[in-house]
Write a protein that binds this DNA or RNA. Structure first.
Lengths: 116, 116
DNA sequence: CGCTTATATTGACATCCATCAATAAGCGCA
DNA sequence: TGCGCTTATTGATGGATGTCAATATAAGCG
């Protein structure tokens, strides 16, 4: 374990420019990776896209199973992942479960990239 | 007898993203998921962050191994994943390999989210 | 040529993950 | 209450993935 001189002006050009005081910490990186993990599946991207394109803004599972050509349990699993990542909201209306984009969630995800 | 109600092939290369017809297609979703897969690892996010924060804009592997507390082959593997995802550029200078952000790559990734 | 350093590749291994079949849980209705 | 429909959960399984140790490749230097 060695310590880096944090405030050194460092015009050294050999091999080692430090400057990681602004870089992502371990904890933040792990947190942010969770969001991208949720996005890192083609079918989940399509789910988000379909829900976003829906005129009413919310869609029930029954309408999501067919276009993805996946079993109902699989779709339910993907939706759960997206909800837990904060990207979707779930609202139960009677027998049906309606999913909608969590407000600002995609913007926040995009900002993660801008602020890396 | 061909009765498919297809869209006209856009002979115009100027400006037309998928318009509005439907959500993400299977092929596009798979392609975009590759980018997010590359981003879906805490250590790769930290790599991007460190490289972005570097004053020179490029960093050699030797400077990336230590702050991540990972073995050199593992770092090399992560860097390869990021390069193949189009997020990083690799430039070999003598014995060292310098990695820098691929121009516009993070913006393009952020736009994927905005245009879902 | 050998030696040293820096990076990449290979192989192995453990863990994670997407998917499905089967089943459970909730809700509406007769 | 019991039946039918919608959604969620469980368990199993094949495949992807992150990590390391060992080794290979490559470049500079004596």
């Amino acid at each position: 374990m060695n310590l880096l001189p944090v405030l050194e002006p460092t015009t050294d050009t050999t091999c080692c420019p430090p400057a990681e005081d602004t870089a992502l910490g371990v904890k933040e990186a792990k947190q942010q990776a969770l969001v991208f993990k949720a996005l890192a599946d083609p079918n989940r991207l399509r789910l988000l896209s379909i829900i976003k394109a829906s005129p009413s803004g919310s869609t029930c599972v029954c309408d999501l199973t067919e276009p993805l050509d996946l079993g109902q349990p699989t779709v339910s699993h993907h939706l759960k992942v997206l909800v837990e990542a904060g990207l979707l909201q779930r609202e139960k209306r009677g027998t049906w479960a309606y999913f909608s984009l969590a407000p600002g969630a995609l913007d926040r995800a995009a900002n993660l990239l801008a602020n890396l």
